[in-house]
């Protein structure tokens, strides 16, 4: 039996995706392509000048399956429409422009899949594709997602607590951190074989959490959104979701979780250590060197006037549940 306690900071279900927008998404993706290629003058709308060199677009749509799960309670916060959640992605493995992952990932094969749990644990194990959906009870959780680029969404994820996975592995006393790794498969992931499309970062993408962060009930291993399995651009078949941290911590398409004794290296921290820290907790007080983090644009439905700017909350509004993890730490130094 699942016992759920609802906290004031939890989001609740409220709104369903407009079917019309969903069905229309191919249309506007095409529109954006037209803008990019057609307007010589304008250089870069969605597509860049360099797109004239040609990108590969696989038009066969990835098949998502319906999932069975415990639904979340109704939400006071407006959900970001599904069509926006699945077409606005930072997943450089499939292209560094926001619209590219949805266009360049549709041929991605997620079955078979192996997620390997290893390192400082008594019971290392692997989860294959079917296990991802069967090994743990699935539940829906509506979380705010705050990108380090100062935009945000509200997403109904489906998944299981990372803590359940950790407990199953029985970490040894040496296990202090978890090191996550994304699939490395340049054959399938165009960003990994093309440096320009891949945004110039080194692969595989790696991330990490401290043990107590991983055990926090908010930390979710997600296998789906909006009632269905994850599409590739959102990190199929399994990804991390840590809603009190900037989005780049929530690593996608995970193949490995290794328990280690010291802080593991992380991709964005390696690339630009003064801009992206290991902790990356959402913090309106500590700006990114190139922009303010005090507020954010919430992406909801509607055109350019509907993208409302709202104040960013400490720990993305989840302070009640996670602030105690960092008591005594100077969050200006551990950004």
């Amino acid at each position: 039996m699942l016992i759920k306690s609802i906290k004031p900071s939890d989001s609740k279900e409220h709104q369903v995706t407009d079917e019309k927008i969903y069905l229309d998404r191919r249309h506007y993706l095409k529109q954006m392509g037209f803008l990019g290629a057609g307007a010589l003058l304008s250089g870069n709308a969605s597509a860049s000048l360099l797109d004239l060199f040609g990108d590969e677009t696989d038009t066969s749509l990835f098949k998502q399956r319906d999932l069975s799960y415990t639904p979340a309670k109704a939400s006071a916060e407006t959900l970001t429409p599904e069509t926006k959640v699945i077409t606005h992605n930072n997943f450089y493995e499939f292209g560094a422009q926001k619209n590219q992952p949805a266009e360049l990932s549709q041929g991605f094969k997620v079955d078979p899949w192996t997620l390997t749990i290893s390192g400082e644990v008594e019971k290392p194990f692997t989860l294959d594709y079917d296990d991802l959906y069967a090994a743990f009870d699935l539940e829906e959780r509506i979380y705010r997602l705050r990108c380090v680029e100062a935009w945000s969404m509200v997403v109904p994820w489906i998944g299981f607590s990372l803590a359940d996975l950790v407990k199953k592995a029985k970490p040894t006393s040496k296990a202090k951190y978890l090191a996550f790794e994304t699939l490395y498969d340049p054959e399938q992931m165009i960003g990994q074989r093309n440096r320009r499309l891949g945004g110039g970062i080194s692969y595989p993408y790696i991330e990490g959490l401290r043990m107590d962060e991983a055990l926090n009930p908010l930390a979710l291993m997600s296998v789906g959104l909006y009632g269905k399995t994850l599409p590739p651009q959102n990190g199929a078949p399994i990804r991390l979701v840590v809603p009190w941290k900037y989005g780049f911590k929530s690593i996608k398409s995970v193949v490995g979780i290794k328990f280690v004794d010291r802080e593991p290296p992380t991709t964005w921290n390696l690339l630009a250590p003064h801009e992206y820290g290991f902790y990356a907790n959402v913090n309106p007080e500590v700006d990114h060197p190139r922009w303010s983090q005090a507020s954010e644009r919430r992406i909801t439905t509607g055109g350019i006037f509907a993208q409302n700017r709202i104040d960013t909350l400490p720990f993305n509004g989840y302070g009640d549940q996670v602030a105690s993890l960092y008591s005594g730490m100077n969050l200006r130094n551990y950004y």
Partner: peptide, 17 residues
């Protein structure tokens, strides 16, 4: 941009364009 045909984040698109 006004018709919501610039993808999920029209703001980023109009600024960049």
């Amino acid at each position: 941009a006004f018709a919501d045909r610039l993808g999920a984040d029209p703001v980023e698109v109009v600024i960049h364009f």
